[in-house]
Amino acid sequence: MAVEESRFTHTAEPLCGTAANRCQYKNLPLRDLPPLGVVRRARIAREGLRERRADIPAPGRPSRFAEGDWVRVKDEAAVRATLDDKDRHRGLWFTGSQWSFCGGVYQVERIVRRMIDDHYRVRRLSGTVALAGATCHGADGTQGCGLDCALLFRDEWLEPAPAPVPAPRPVALWATVRGLAEIRATLDPDGRLHGVPFQPGMEHHTGTRHSALELRHRSLAWWQHPTGGRWFILDGLRCGGEPLATGCDRRCALLWHESWLHLEPAATAP
């Protein structure tokens, strides 16, 4: 995901990259075979060095919308009028899966002012939001990379809208998050399972029940598919940036290992 160039401004906040400040997506449970695995590790190392040498960008300016507001994604013609010849506005790409959300009404989930991008670099954004339910899966659920990435929307692509009538969604699988003691028993001394951290804040979800989607990273070759058992994304549970001293508003889906969950097919769930 491309974003506007960062304007680095001094901040007293500590840098990320310590043992206590870990992003799950820097440790995705994928087979790290060349070439993509080598490239990914090199990017992580490069950006870690960059963060130690440079200031972290200050947060961008807020959106004109507030969290909880209902907005409509403008129609395709109105969005295209804001884009350059590379389908970008102020550096942010309107992705292929975003077109399926045009005309839909969604709730603002997060004001995005700073985030870690796909190259593990901390970026500053202004006038940008994440919308609940608007992810790279697309409106029909068939697109994207399989990680259910939150899509980012510029203010210029949105307009105020009334709240819609809630509609039920089909569920194929339910998951209840196991107790903290059970989860801790699966972790190494550094709080990880297969290299993936059980992030700060995830403990607040123990005992809760959610619809679940198994992680299937569609953008990678078969030899880089998830390892270490089955991993899941739970509906509504997203990272709020708690593990990162820099802060990150990207709202990535939290990753849950099968051993952290009690899984129930929807047909047998009450």
Rank of each mutant, 00 (worst) to 15 (best):
61 R>P: 15
62 P>V: 03
63 S>M: 06
63 S>R: 04
64 R>N: 11
64 R>F: 04
65 F>N: 08
67 E>C: 15
68 G>M: 01
68 G>T: 00
71 V>E: 01
71 V>T: 01
71 V>P: 08
72 R>E: 02
73 V>I: 08
73 V>F: 01
74 K>H: 03
74 K>V: 03
74 K>D: 03
74 K>A: 12
76 E>L: 04
76 E>W: 01
76 E>C: 04
76 E>G: 09
77 A>C: 03
77 A>H: 03
79 V>P: 08
79 V>T: 07
79 V>Q: 06
79 V>M: 07
80 R>S: 12
80 R>M: 09
80 R>G: 08
81 A>I: 04
81 A>D: 09
83 L>T: 00
83 L>Y: 02
84 D>P: 11
85 D>I: 10
85 D>S: 12
85 D>H: 05
86 K>R: 15
87 D>Q: 11
87 D>S: 11
87 D>V: 06
87 D>M: 11
89 H>G: 10
90 R>G: 07
91 G>D: 07
91 G>M: 03
91 G>C: 07
91 G>Y: 04
92 L>S: 10
92 L>D: 05
92 L>F: 02
93 W>T: 15
93 W>D: 14
94 F>P: 14
94 F>G: 11
94 F>L: 11
95 T>G: 15
95 T>E: 14
96 G>P: 12
96 G>S: 13
